[in-house]
Structures are given as C-alpha cells and as structure tokens.
Design a protein around this nucleic acid. Structure first.
Lengths: 177, 177
DNA sequence: CACCCATATTGGACACCACATATATGTGCA
DNA sequence: TGCACATATATGTGGTGTCCAATATGGGTG
C-alpha cells in the first residue's frame, strides 16, 4: 500500500482536500502513480483514522464543505520511514507484451496493427511528458532536480520503446514479406 | 483480468496442470507477467467453470492427481478476441519513482543510496533477461521472433534505465557537492 | 429553460490478487 | 530418525483498487 505514502508526501508539501489531491495526482505525479477518486477519499479517511493526518473542515457557504488534510508528526515520521525502507519492486505486468507473446495466432497485418497502435500510444505519452511543466526554480533546488528526474525517466523509457518498436517492426517485415 | 488470457495463451501452446502453469509463468513469461500460485488455480477453475477450458484428471498412484487443462474452442475464440480487442494500458505505478519524487526530505547520501540500490537491481534484472534461453528455432518462425521481441523489450528498457541512472547520479552530485 | 461542467464527498458492489496455511506423499540428505 | 524439498491442489482472509452512482450546488452555454 503506497498510495498512503504518496498522499502523505503530497500533503507534506501542501495540505489539501481530497478533491485537490486527485487533481494533483493526475497532473503532477500521474506519470508514475495514479489513483481512483474514491480510493483517494478512502485512503485519506484511513490516514486520519490512524492518526497520520488531521482533517480540518472549512465551511463554504456556496459549496460543499472542504476538508483540508495535513500530515501529523506521526505521518511525517511514517513518510520518512517509508522513504528509506527496503523497496519491493512490484512484478511487471504488461498486457501489451502479453499479447505480443501470443500474437503469432494472428495474421501478420494484425500484428503490424498491434505495433502501430502501440507506437501511437507511446508517441502520445512521450508528448504528454514533454509538455509537463515543472515549476521554475533554481538549478540547485534538490526537490526540483528530483522531480525533473522522474519526468526524464519516463521520457527516456518512452524513447527507448520507440526505438525498440522500429527494430521489431523491421524484424517482422523481414520474415512476413 | 488478463491472467485468464495469459493462461489461455499458454494452454493453447501446451495443455498442462496448474503446477506446470505456475512454473511456465515464472520461467517463460515472468519478464512481463507474474501470478501467484493460488491465483493460477483459482483462474483455472474459473476458466473451466465458464467453459473456456476443460479439465482432464490423470490419476497418479504415488502422487496427488494431475489435472490437465486444455482450452475449448470457446476458449480459443476468446483468446483471439482478446488479442485484437482494444488494449487499455494500465496506469504505471512505480514505487521507486514515487520515492525519488519525495526524496528531498532525505539527506543526500540516502538519495545516493536509493539510486545505487536501484542500479544494482536493474543490473541483476538485465542479467536475468540476458540469461533467458529462448528455444532454438528457425529465424523465420513468427512465434519465436515475437517471443524474442518481448525479451529484447525488457533488455532495452533496462539499458535505458541504467543510462538514466548515470545521468541522474551525475546531476545530483553536481548540486550536492 | 435545459443541459453540462466544475466543485466536493461518500458508499456499495465487485474484481483481482497476495499471503498464509492445509493436505498428501516420494526422494534424498544428514 | 528427522528434515527439507519437490510434486500437486485448494481455501480462507484481507487488502487494494476500479467502476458506478448518489448527493448537493453554482456557473456558463445553447
């Protein structure tokens, strides 16, 4: 369960509501983490229940009330504990590769279609990553450098995949022609 | 739920028991798919229940009975349907990047530690991929080419990540020195 | 006026999966 | 004798997550 920690991390930068959190997750950390809206609220409730965060209700007259969440000292300690705990890498599980593995059941043009669709998707993904703006800051701001690094990770993986797609397409053409 | 389809795919190549299936998954498709043992049996039971596979019991005197599973025509049809159905790419969810994103809470040497640990892991992963033997076959066997492609995917992604790790480490050293 | 969108939170149902544990037995090693 | 390991299947439990839908209201567009 790392959504707890991702949320604690975001709240440690800026206290916010579940609604804001969902938006920040989609926009700022969406390239390496995602969360369902209802899961955000449930996780937030769990954090409060476990004493890792506090909830402050802000009454809004024209809107539903806002629940601003902040990490407690316990929450920040848990965040730091997580940051240095041994990390168990989740097993890769890639439906695209799964299909490609069994794709010899398909006619060659369908296989080409699989690769072309993937090329389009990865291209779009790459464009999206390159469009993400990281707030300006001094070049030696550690936080900024780290956030840029997570972005460039995605970009370099996407580029490598495009190269691989070219290679693979070429190899397939050689044997299906 | 794609485990169903991965299992149907494997069974379409060779009927086998849940026990064998678990081994094949770990050894042959482990670089892009994994499955818990109990999940394999449950999924297999589900496939039989839904008429996508049949179970043939092979009585063994000195061992527990073997349940050999084969896909039915319906199962093969479902496999082919899945192979060409629109593929929804699951959101990436990378705990390592999540940590790196918030790692400015840590002292610089801990951040270096994160990167070094990752470097070792990716290096091991790369070595494991390069060690996987793909059964020999003619160079124009479509299935073989596709299976090699899924392997080379993992290899190219791992290499790109090693390059990125070098870059990132260099950038961090420049600002924390 | 009707409709959709944005704001904001919550709950039910269900899927999938991991972890632990149970059962049964043969082989080989110390 | 005892232990671990391989073969082989199955269940219980709980955690994490998605999908869908309900609720409430203001603002903008057709």
């Amino acid at each position: 369960m790392s959504l707890r920690h991702a949320i604690l991390g975001i709240l440690s930068i800026q206290p916010m509501s579940g609604y804001d959190l969902k938006k920040v997750i989609d926009e700022s950390v969406g390239h390496f983490w995602s969360a369902d809206q209802s899961q955000v609220y449930r996780t937030l409730a769990g954090l409060v229940e476990d004493g890792l965060a506090t909830r402050r209700t802000v009454v809004q007259e024209e809107r539903p009330n806002l629940h601003l969440h902040s990490p407690t000292d316990l929450g920040l300690a848990e965040l730091d504990r997580w940051l240095t705990s041994p990390l168990k890498t989740p097993p890769t599980r890639d439906p695209f590769l799964a299909r490609l593995f069994f794709a010899d059941r398909l006619p060659p043009e369908e296989i080409r279609g699989l690769l072309e669709t993937r090329r389009r998707e990865v291209g779009e993904q790459l464009a999206a990553l390159e469009a993400i703006a990281v707030p300006a800051g001094s070049a030696d701001d550690l936080g900024r450098v780290l956030r840029l690094a997570t972005l460039s990770y995605g970009i370099s993986q996407a580029r490598a995949e495009l190269d691989w797609l070219d290679d693979t397409r070429r190899r397939l053409e050689r044997i299906t022609s």
